[in-house]
């Protein structure tokens, strides 16, 4: 049960894994939710998986936003303007 640094998750725990995102987002209905919670209380491996999965989600959410460089916006807008000038307006 005690997780070593390079241990791998056992099969019974792997099966529970399928509902972990739903569990994190509180979308697992009550009886099943209790069962997962009970398992977590006894299984150190699954607690680690839960924590690392939550952290992964948080890291994705915090990933820096990549704004378009001004030169890119300008270039694309220039192409777009040529197209707007060239094209007849779309039919209503």
């Amino acid at each position: 049960m005690k997780a070593g640094p390079s241990s791998s998750l056992g099969t019974p725990c792997l099966r529970r894994l399928a509902r972990l995102s739903a569990y994190i987002e509180r979308e697992v209905p009550s009886p099943a939710r209790e069962s997962i919670r009970r398992h977590m209380a006894h299984c150190a491996d699954c607690r680690v998986v839960l924590r690392t999965l939550k952290k992964t989600i948080a890291l994705c959410r915090q990933a820096p936003k990549i704004d378009p460089p001004q030169a890119v916006s300008k270039r694309v807008l220039a192409v777009l303007r040529r197209e707007l000038a060239r094209c007849r307006p779309p039919a209503p």
Binding site: S6, V49, K54
Partner: peptide, 8 residues
């Protein structure tokens, strides 16, 4: 492979 290591 499903590593179990608490890096959090």
């Amino acid at each position: 492979a499903f590593p179990v290591d608490d890096w959090t």
